[in-house]
Design a protein around this nucleic acid. Structure first.
Lengths: 257, 257
DNA sequence: GCGGGTTTTCGAACGCGTTCAACTCCTCCC
DNA sequence: GGGAGGAGTTGAACGCGTTCGAAAACCCGC
């Protein structure tokens, strides 16, 4: 049996990577719907069945794309965030770099985010499978905040990363619907809402707003993070664990991360 | 040629209705994915081709469901809103009545909202095709506001209906992902956020929050309403017009409205 | 009734994502 | 080196949404 889980056998990992690369290439060339599993298999020189041995569905192939894009975005954003202290500006940078990275995949990504909106899809940003990617994204927003010169108290600081992440989701959603050239409208939306975010953070310390902040924090804890704090036990612990790959296991580990 | 568009011929309209009713019944029984076009056609006693003569796709059949649900919701909400003056309570009622109405269609509706999230889908809440439904929903939220005893100034009053509508979209999105029994979590979320909405409306008149309200209003005008003001013409007029029903026209009008 | 055009209906066929039983290949122990 | 058993691979087959050419039904002026 051995602990071959680490990187799979060399052969296995190679085939898996080959299929993924081929798929991403075709996605770029022909879009998501324009790319058939048969075409992927043919260009990769394998059988369709083999593709399904490594990827449970066509959607799962797309996870590879998503991971890659996320990593590219992180790198570019971190680079541009250096020496920028203003919170609004930092938020703006995170959002616009994302739009830059995503631009070449515009049409494809739109289809992708459609599928991601399916609650039952593993690509959904709220799904268990996406937890790693989600945490990464939230962590990134935490980084945006800690690098800012703006001071705010612990309460809102705890709240903001998740809030910023939700904000980004909103922008992405808008972008997916945006048909303006170069996604100008989305860019403008990102820039303006980035300013609003900073304004909200600034205002949040005023007394009239305080209860609202506390309430928002509590809401996010309960409904977004949903690791219930010890004391309010989860009402339904016995949920079946969503077999991701029902028939046979995928042997190689995730391609990224 | 004649102006038969009004209600189609009696026969035609009858067939269309038959197919739609059959489809909705099957959707309820077996869910969206569990219902095949062949099954719909068979139970309705027509051919698959005939179903496609009246409905351009399986998705289009679902529009009928959506219209009906919206109308049911409106009726129930208006009924329960009578004699309720508190804004938070009124918002809560609108949201929970929606959850009540949607409950029987839980599994089906989730798949439905997946498709609705597709930017290119006519079911998208932001699409041109959905404008009527969208306006109706926003109008309903305006009604929620005017019936409330809470006083707020013109600025926020103009803003709130759209904001409430977005709020509802958020709840629906959460609900689509919610797997808790009877959608309890969504219910709780609706109840709590309803309170937050009222709180926000109450706070909005304070001086520190004022600029934020103005900014939010401006944002909604620009990015949500999005009738581009004359002067900035649509930059890419030559996009192929997305033939909704490429082969032949649908003769009957929409089933509702 | 009759001929024409239009509207409505049909069902075989297409291409798709996905599944499955069968096969080959590899590895490792005796 | 033999063979047992898992890992890797195959391609035909399934059921689906959708399309299409053609036929039937209908309508209406003659």
């Amino acid at each position: 049996m051995r602990e071959t889980v680490r990187a799979g056998t060399a052969k296995s990992e190679q085939t898996r990577a080959l299929i993924l690369e081929t798929a991403l290439g075709l996605f770029r060339e022909r879009g998501y719907d324009g790319t058939t599993m048969r075409a992927i298999a043919q260009r990769a020189g394998v059988s369709v069945g083999n593709a399904y041995y490594y990827f449970a569905s066509k959607e799962h192939l797309v996870q590879g794309f998503y991971d890659r894009m996320t990593e590219e975005h992180r790198a570019l954003a971190v680079e541009q965030l250096a020496d920028v202290a203003d919170l609004g500006e930092r938020v703006r940078i995170v959002l616009t770099t994302w739009l830059d990275i995503a631009e070449p995949y515009r049409e494809f990504a739109a289809t992708f985010f459609k599928n991601a909106a399916d609650p039952s899809s593993p690509l959904s940003p709220f799904s268990a499978e996406s937890k790693a990617a989600r945490d990464t994204a939230i962590e990134m927003h935490r980084y945006v905040l800690t690098g800012s010169k703006l001071r705010y108290d612990a309460e809102i600081e705890r709240l903001l990363p998740e809030l910023l992440w939700l904000h980004q989701l909103g922008i992405v959603l808008y972008w997916a619907h945006d048909k303006s050239p170069h996604a100008e409208r989305s860019r403008r939306l990102a820039e303006r809402t980035a300013g609003v975010v900073a304004k909200v953070a600034r205002i949040s310390k005023y007394k009239v707003v305080r209860p609202l902040v506390r309430e928002a924090d509590s809401l996010l804890r309960e409904f977004l993070i949903s690791e219930p704090d010890p004391g309010s036990p989860p009402p339904e612990p016995a949920r079946p664990p969503e077999p991701e790959h029902p028939r046979r296991p995928v042997h190689g580990p995730a391609s990224s991360g």
